Amino acid sequence: MTDSSEENSNGKLAQLDAYYRQVNEIILQRQDWVSGLLPASTAVNIHGNYTDAWVRDNVYSILSAWGLALAYRRLGEAEGKTYLLEQSVVKLMRGLLTAMMRQAFKVERFKHTQDPLDALHAKYDTKTGNVVVGDSEWGHLQLDATSLFLLMLAQMTASGLRIIFTIDEVNFVQNLVHYISRTYRTPDYGIWERGNKINHGIAELNASSIGMAKAALEAMSGFNLFGKNGGQTAVIHVISDDIARTRIALESLLPRESLSKEVDSAVLSVIGYPAFAVDQDSLRNRTEQLIIDKLQGRYGCKRFLLDGHQTEIEDSHRLHYDPHELKQFMDIECEWPLFFTYLLLNRLFANHQEGAKDYREKIDRLMVEQIGQ
């Protein structure tokens, strides 16, 4: 190795070490040492108790540790950080798998009933992985969360991680594939856990759920859960017609999220990272542009129009609003910086450097320092 290339490698390692401190202090130090699960947040406020382990939040959170491990591996890091990060990922994914396997009977029932009360739970107790709310006390049917878990399970396994250990676990994952295979015709509560816009607990078809299911089904089709050296018994089977129907349903819904939500930032997760579920460039570009035009603001993007969640005038004691009441939230909907990260990543993957730089600057302006981070 020449002096210049060695300097370059050391500089990259120093940058990754800075990321490692952030990932460790902000995320991994909150990982439960028994269950492997993460609390969605440490916040307990008038909007709710967020210390439970949401499936979706756990998978998204651990992606930073997995991505950092891949970067360290590429540089040949030799201090053990790669191994620690990878095993934190394995522990979390197995924690979620264990929590869901305790509800295997519900997965079996749901395949036949399609009843939201038979759905896998969307969140679990962080310390034990047990259920924390009843079947009828939460909008548990969130097919995007189960699909996200399956999509990343395939990608992490393909990267060399061993997450699935036994044939019983393979069989359960196969059942999860059947569980999401009818997403194209199964109304659910979606990524915002609320159903339709007026939050009356009415499930509806959501493009963000359908798109994530399409990505998961494609990733799982013919995939060996034991890795490249696994036998035929660990190969997952997906019916090709289910993928085709899911694609058709997604393309017919977009650029809308659902019947009640004409535009929704949740769709960013399926037109780009992590699902990359839309094959038509024109439809993908049209959907993203609609989100930017209708929802983007100075601090981020609104979730959807007339969204009252956490606004200044929201009544925290009420769960539902009548249609005529939604107008009071016009132009005061919360803007969430989270969606700038989706837009940034999508431009990086498309190699649009100027667009990526613009969103990076938008995010940097919103940074708030806490405890040196």
Rank of each mutant, 00 (worst) to 15 (best):
D115G: 02
Q87R: 06
R365E: 06
F340S: 01
D293F: 11
S240V: 10
R185I: 10
T166Q: 01
L205S: 04
F105M: 02
A69T: 00
L28C: 12
F165S: 11
A266N: 00
V278W: 02
W54N: 13
C301P: 05
M93L: 14
L37G: 10
K123G: 03
A356W: 00
F110G: 01
I191A: 11
V132S: 15
L117R: 11
A99I: 01
Q328Y: 03
G230D: 02
A215H: 03
L176H: 07
P337G: 13
I363K: 01
D241W: 03
V90E: 05
Y179N: 06
T287P: 00
V170M: 12
A145H: 11
A154D: 05
S240H: 15
L141D: 02
D32H: 15
I239W: 02
K327D: 01
L225Y: 10
L63M: 14
A249Q: 10
A275T: 09
Y72M: 01
S269F: 00
R162I: 10
A119M: 09
S181P: 04
V235S: 08
I167W: 04
A234W: 07
F172V: 03
F105R: 08
Q373G: 12
D57R: 00
I236N: 09
L68R: 00
E312P: 07
L117Y: 11
